[in-house]
Write a protein that binds this DNA or RNA. Structure first.
Length: 448
DNA sequence: ATAGGGTTAG
């Protein structure tokens, strides 16, 4: 069977083409080749093609099974198409398949990852729905929830899920501990993170490279470079192979600490270890160099990156735009944005917001507003950061009425002000005697 | 032939 042969050889595109060529002869296709194809497409994030294969499987009357549905539902959840996932669950029921633990885990994971307010509440509701349908959650279900609460900066809720998991007789795994350690690290609670590391070792669980990566990241972010470096040395001593992420994490920490020589030493040693540097490696180094104003070496690095077969990505361009803006060269930054569009990269919210911030810092509100128009033409809607940048820009120019108008506009659009919004309004408006329409509203935000 | 964790920019 051609489709399966291609997919097994990691030639997903060819497998997909063979699927299309197979025509209407169902006997040529079976679930044993369609499911691996679906699975490969999901891994490559080709959700449009997943949708196509799914519809065609139904149309051609390929026999589908519960695994087909689970792969499709997981794919939709991974790209945040939660409503589509729910539709697929209706389809699977109509076909006589009941959702199982894979189906529910995919859906819970989708809600945990999608972000937005109340997402964990929804994830919790699905857990209840799952239990009511007599599908038992497994350790993966709990790991997903723990990670979700940690990313929601709700460690205490994550700890409660951790307890619940044990009550259910499920044993925590390395992933469970990694999630919790990461949550604590991101909150700067490093002592507690180390406490959990000891606890997991005490239980006979072996920390893996991810455990070390999250710890290195946690200590690095706090500027505790001695500890971060020791952890890195520990990995090697324990015979655990560092990955490109381990290197990137430590390189980034050195760069932020202004230790560019140490960062470049690591960058060099990656070659000796046979670890391929990726765009992130270069982006970390370029950020560090830009901060030092060392543009000649930035150029050299970009050339090296291209020679290694890597291409600058949106993040690379965002770094360069930010660097020009910080030098008071927003017009040059605008040209960098044009250049990225020319080579086929689509600017994201960060790109536009960064450039707008640069214009605002130079007091050029017109240019900032033009960028906003450009961003909306590009189909990127203004977000909270966009408004924060503009509101602060107008305040700095003494145009408090306009800033007040922007605040109202932001609320009308259903955007939720964040802590930065609150601080800008407090420092730039309220403390200067101007009372914005939504002052009371903002106080309730700052309280939460 | 199906699920969970780690790095970068405002």
């Amino acid at each position: 069977m051609l489709v399966l042969a291609y997919v097994e050889n990691m030639k997903t595109r060819l497998g997909f083409e063979a699927f299309k060529r197979a025509g209407d002869y169902a006997f040529k296709l079976s679930v044993t080749s369609c499911n691996p194809l679906l699975s490969a497409l999901v891994k490559e994030n080709e959700i449009g093609d997943v949708d196509y294969v799914y519809k065609e499987m139904i149309r051609r009357r390929v026999e589908v099974n519960v695994i087909s549905f689970n792969i499709i539902i997981n794919g939709m959840c991974k790209v945040g198409k939660l409503n589509k996932a729910r539709d697929a669950i209706q389809d699977m029921k109509a076909w006589g398949f009941l959702p199982d633990v894979f189906t529910y885990n995919a859906l819970i994971n989708g809600y945990c990852k999608k972000g937005g307010i109340g997402k964990m509440y929804k994830a919790d509701a699905i857990l209840k729905e799952m239990i009511e349908s007599e599908v038992r959650p497994n350790e993966i279900t709990f790991n997903i929830l723990i990670d979700g609460f940690c990313k929601d900066e709700n460690i205490s809720a994550a700890m409660r899920v951790f307890e619940e998991m044990r009550t259910q007789g499920l044993k925590p795994t390395v992933v469970t501990y990694n999630n919790l350690i990461n949550g604590l690290c991101l909150e700067g609670r490093l002592d507690e993170a180390i406490g959990l590391l000891d606890e997991m070792v005490g239980l006979g669980l072996k920390p893996n490279v991810v455990t070390y990566n999250v710890l290195i990241n946690g200590f690095g972010k706090k500027g505790k470079m001695k500890e971060a470096t020791d952890l890195f040395d520990n990995i090697v001593k324990k015979g655990i192979a560092p990955t490109v992420i381990t290197y990137n994490t430590l390189i980034d920490a050195y760069c932020k600490d202004g230790r560019m020589e140490d960062a470049f030493a690591l960058h060099k040693s990656m070659v000796d270890r046979g670890i391929f540097r990726d765009v992130s490696t270069y982006n970390c180094l370029i950020t560090g160099l830009c901060r030092e104003g060392n543009i000649p070496v930035v150029r050299k690095l970009i050339n090296e990156m291209i020679n290694n077969g890597l291409k600058a990505d949106v993040v690379t361009y965002n770094i360069l735009i930010d660097a020009f803006c910080k030098e008071g060269e927003s017009r040059k930054a605008a040209r960098v944005l044009d250049e990225m569009v020319k080579i086929g990269l689509r600017p994201n919210h960060v790109t536009y917001n960064t450039l707008m911030l640069g214009h605002c810092r130079e007091g050029n509100l017109r240019a900032a507003l033009n960028v906003r128009t450009q961003m909306e033409k590009d189909g990127r809607r203004a977000n909270v950061v966009t408004y924060n940048v503009l509101i602060k820009g107008f305040c700095k120019k003494g145009k408090l009425e306009d800033a007040n108008g922007l605040l109202n506009e932001m609320l009308e659009k259903g955007l939720i002000p964040n802590r930065t919004t609150y601080e800008i309004v407090k420092e730039e408006m309220v403390e200067k005697g101007f009372v914005p329409d939504i002052e009371g509203h903002l106080y309730s935000i700052s309280a939460s």
